[in-house]
Design a protein around this nucleic acid. Sequence first.
RNA 1: UCCCGCGUAGCUCAGUUGGUUAGAGCACCUGACUGUUAAUCAGGGUGUCGUAGGUUCGAGUCCUACCGCGGGAGCCA
Length: 472
Amino acid sequence: MTDPISLPRTRVADVLAGRVAPGERAVLKGWVRTRRDSKAGLSFINLHDGSCFDPIQVVAKNELPNYEEEVLHLTSGASCVVEGTVVESPGRGQSVEIHADAVHVVGLVEDPETYPVQPKRHSFEYLRTVAHLRPRTNTFGAIARVRHTLSQAVHRFFDERGFYWIHTPIITTSDAEGAGELFRVSTLDLLNVPRTEEGEVDFSEDFFGRNAFLTVSGQLNVETYCQALSDVYTFGPTFRAENSHTSRHLSEFWMIEPEIAFADLDALAALAEDFLKYLFQVLLEEREDDMAFFAERIEPEAVTRLEQFVESSFERMTYTQAVDILEAADRKWEFPVGWGTDLQSEHERYLVEEHVGRPVVVTDYPKEIKAFYMRQNDDGRTVAALDVLAPGIGEIIGGSQREERLEVLDQRIREMGLDPVDYGWYRDLRRYGTVPHAGFGLGFERLIQYATGMANIRDVIPFPRTPGSAAF
RNA sequence: UCCCGCGUAGCUCAGUUGGUUAGAGCACCUGACUGUUAAUCAGGGUGUCGUAGGUUCGAGUCCUACCGCGGGAGCCA
């Protein structure tokens, strides 16, 4: 007899989508969601294999040789292989079902009473404590598929437009990027740290012979390839050691950073808009079942706001205009509004959620509150920076045109209290055939949050890392 | 790091101005019923009330510290 495990698998998605005609044989492999017994001599098993949102209904009759001993003991989470025939379902709730002529139990649930993922509503907080089992729930299965689809769409978008994917390093030795606190990468013995004659830690004894960290951004590195391949992007893990306890910060997250040559801020804004619209369009088309679930159970506007997003053009305003709007607002601010100070969360929320009601692009910020590499505008007081703000999340994209003029860049580095000597290879790009260029960073998890309506960023990445928490 | 909140059964939660033996739903088991689909109905047992102190005749309830979690702020994507 053939081992049922080795039989070719029919995906639930193919059966439910009608790609397997009624009357055809099928072998389903998956995990039990629920089992309902009928005294008419049959059991209904909802079998899930992750290929789509819905499980498939398996009808198992008591004529099966192992009905009493095994089928009746299947509980949520148990795995099995079902051989049977695809049949149009006489019951409501599904178009087709599987009439089983064999149910092979592969793995039972050891103690059904304490199985952590029961077929009921769990809190997300609780499910984080069983991160190894939460992908078996509707929500986390849907998020996994959305995450995959968006990842693929990111690469497809850039590939279709001639961008090259550059694998920028995870380990960096430039500790002056100024994008946040860094995780140190070291093999030094913490209990016996080598010291210099001055008593400082001697990093020349360390693995790389110098200070090393996990990257906080691939931007500086990807700029080098931009200055040779024109249109490039990075997409990979990024690390911030900030002690942030919020629903939109992770210590380890994924970031997408395109960089385009011979381009200014307007071109960058257009790219950001095309990019987001493309991603959401793909999501609406390819993950219709999962998005319907998010709209039904997580965020009622999940689908409609993406549809509107794809249809409408971005609202654009300068930082100066934004400050004018905030100052004119009939509102008491916890933090004062004034030209020259950064926009606070309450300010961004007002602009996005109340004043405009959809994502907003804010451009041309005061140079004092932005990074050294952003291109100085002709007014001498602002830089060509751009933030895309989204309702409920805040900053989803941050970017800028880069300073391509060496003398201006050096001046900005010094103004920030930094030393041009530390930026040798970055300055070289301005010495050898410099061109205007621009780029932005998109937090992938924040994109997923916005797309699905999930409130906490820890629930849109499989194994979240946050301060004090790196289980699993 | 700062501010606020929470911690009671495997899970989700209730528990009054401090007062006898700690409550419900889900899950699980048994039975009834049923082409069922969050099935329904009846029955069954369940706890270091986060930890350690303190106040009190008496603490799940009040106080202190600590631990854990969550929300907000800052920082940012």
